[in-house]
């Protein structure tokens, strides 16, 4: 398994993009994406995935030291983050920071698993070895939901609140870039754009996507705080 190496993938591309931008501009290309919804509002939590046409382009793959474990926290009965893009083969840990038990599960085809009621760190992280979307739920708390987007490419980024995401260190070449979002209406492939990235250049692209209704279940009221 290649899990240790791939675990070094940048945990938060949005945070990194600002400081890395100046350092690596000369050595690799950069894709700056803007995602908006049908109303033109910037859309957060969209995942931009760039897939290189030729396998040889993998030269510029960001090298990640395997020190940091990628995690999805459970804090205050919510998964954090809500959307987590990872590359295939990445293991994700689901530490429980609440003082109650959670029962994390997924029925998604890309990864079916179940972490029965537990407190604290689970025994082992979960390896996401197939590309696709894995929807995480908690069997105790219906409203808890998180998405692990398992990308079949190392080049991906998640939009921030301003709807932008920056893919850095892209080796120059031809890419098919697509957008995914938990509420994306229609197929992911339909968003695919073909882009050429050069070592020196910054490619900008923007998407406007339609969303399905927000389907999240409201939180159950906290006892004693009804009405507040």
């Amino acid at each position: 398994m290649q899990a240790p190496t791939s675990a070094s993938t940048l945990r938060l591309p949005a945070l990194m993009s600002a400081c890395l931008l100046a350092a690596f501009t000369a050595s690799a290309g950069e894709l700056r994406a803007l995602v908006r919804d049908a109303d033109g509002k910037p859309l957060a939590d969209a995942v931009i995935v760039a897939v290189a046409d030729a396998p040889g382009q993998r030269a510029g793959r960001p090298a990640a030291p395997g020190t940091d474990t990628i995690i999805i926290d459970q804090v205050n009965k919510e998964f954090i983050p809500y959307v987590l893009p990872v590359e295939v083969g990445t293991s994700v840990s689901f530490p429980n920071r609440d003082n109650i038990r959670h029962h994390v599960y997924s029925f998604s085809d890309a990864k079916r698993f179940e972490l029965p009621l537990y407190i604290g760190d689970p025994a082992a992280p979960v390896l996401f070895d197939k590309p696709g979307t894995v929807i995480l739920g908690c069997n105790i708390h219906d409203w808890m939901i998180a998405y692990v987007y398992v990308a079949n490419s190392p080049y991906y980024a998640k939009t921030d609140a301003s709807g932008t995401a920056t893919l850095t260190r892209l080796p120059s070449g031809h890419y098919r870039v697509r957008v995914w979002h938990p509420r994306l209406a229609g197929g992911e492939d339909e968003t695919t754009e073909s882009l050429d990235v050069t070592d020196e250049g910054v490619v900008e692209a923007s998407w406007q996507i339609s969303l399905t209704p927000d389907f999240r279940i409201p939180r159950a009221p906290v006892p004693g705080q009804a009405g507040y």
């Binding site: 599960y105 029925f107 908690c138 219906d142 409203w143 389907f215």
Partner: peptide
């Protein structure tokens, strides 16, 4: 009604 897991499946 939807079958939520936790998104509708």
């Amino acid at each position: 009604v939807p079958v939520l897991a936790p998104a509708p499946i």
